[in-house]
Simulated scan of single mutants.
Amino acid sequence: MAVTDLPLLAMLRSRMQWQQARQTLIAENVANADMPGFRPRDLTALRFDPATGKPAASGTLALTQAGHMAPAGAAGPGADPRKTKSFEVRPSGNAVNLEEEMMKAGDNQSDYQLAASMYQKSLDTLKIAIGKR
């Protein structure tokens, strides 16, 4: 078993991948802020199965055997884009609220930095435990 296969590290890695995918969608929302008829998208919240520590299925297809093909459009753990509820829709049909998207981007960035910091501290703790530091 590799050190990076520990459940805590796997959960942090999944969380960071989810946040990278979410940042991509937020950037797409901002980039299409002037496109007529564009609706902003976001990812469903990432949840972990308490028993296994792996991302819980969110009603999407799952790989049950290594030989199976990944579902189309799967961009990482929890990558289930959904339309967001927005109160402001311009006459052109665009529903992107730049202030809201910038708040999401800032929150997402701070959450990513927290997960990355926890990942690094966990690795440092493991190094201390095995005497490599």
Rank of each mutant, 00 (worst) to 15 (best):
D34V: 08
P77T: 02
G93H: 08
L63E: 10
G93W: 11
A56Y: 01
K83E: 12
S86C: 08
G78Q: 00
F48H: 01
A66P: 11
M69K: 10
K83I: 09
P81I: 02
G67W: 06
L61Q: 15
T84I: 14
G53V: 00
A70V: 10
G73R: 06
T52Y: 02
D42H: 12
R90G: 01
A66C: 06
A75N: 12
A79S: 15
R82G: 12
F48Y: 05
M69H: 09
P77K: 00
A57E: 11
R82L: 11
F48D: 03
M69N: 12
E88H: 15
D42P: 06
G76Y: 10
A57V: 02
F48W: 05
S92W: 06
P50N: 07
K85E: 14
K85R: 15
A56L: 05
P55E: 01
K54G: 07
G93N: 10
A79C: 10
A62Y: 11
T64M: 10
K83L: 14
A70G: 05
P77W: 00
R39M: 05
P55R: 06
T60A: 15
S92Q: 09
A74W: 10
A51P: 07
P50F: 01
A31E: 08
F38E: 01
K83F: 13
T64G: 09
D42E: 11
G93Y: 06
G93I: 06
T44W: 07
G53H: 01
D34K: 13
P77M: 01
A51W: 11
H68G: 07
D34A: 13
Q65L: 03
A66N: 12
M35F: 10
P50L: 00
F38Q: 00
R39T: 07
P50T: 00
R41D: 05
A66F: 12
F87S: 09
A51S: 15
D80K: 15
D49A: 08
F87L: 09
S58T: 08
G59T: 05
T60P: 01
R47V: 04
L63N: 07
A79W: 01
A31R: 10
T44K: 15
P55A: 04
K54V: 06
F38V: 02
R82M: 13
A56R: 13
T84K: 13
D34Y: 08
P50Q: 05
A31L: 06
V89K: 10
A56T: 04
G67S: 14
T84E: 09
L61S: 10
A79T: 05
M35N: 13
A57C: 04
G73M: 11
P40S: 04
V30Y: 02
P71E: 09
D80I: 11
R39H: 14
G78V: 00
P55D: 01
D80A: 13
P81Y: 08
L43A: 02
A51F: 09
T52N: 07
R39V: 05
G73Y: 04
P71F: 04
A45R: 12
R39K: 15
